[in-house]
């Protein structure tokens, strides 16, 4: 029950969990950033929309996601 046979290298994991985190945040961030840019010309109707939260939050998420995606990309190191 507790013995662990050798893992087949062809099926062993190649992606870090942090890579998945990076991809998810990058994808969401990019979409939100694009929406934020669009809202400069078509302002939203939510409270404090004048602060352009979608743009700034999307930018932050894109930067975070990009860093994690690149830093933990498969095959690095």
């Amino acid at each position: 029950m507790t013995t662990t046979p050798p893992v087949d290298p062809s099926t062993e994991k190649k992606f870090s969990i942090w890579f998945f985190v990076g991809v998810l945040v990058l994808a969401c961030g990019a979409v939100i950033l694009a929406q934020g840019i669009y809202e400069f010309w078509h302002p939203g109707t939510t409270v404090l929309a004048n602060l352009h939260p979608a743009f700034w939050w999307g930018l932050l998420m894109t930067a975070f996601g990009l860093f994690y995606t690149i830093h933990f990309r498969p095959g690095k190191g």
Partner: peptide, 26 residues
């Protein structure tokens, strides 16, 4: 679109890690 991307990703992860869950400990 964001919601669908999330669903696609979790399903992908399930198939992806299946190969490294061959023993009870795993």
């Amino acid at each position: 679109a964001i919601l669908l991307f999330y669903f696609a990703m979790v399903i992908f992860i399930g198939f992806y890690v299946k190969g490294s869950t061959n023993t009870s400990e795993q």
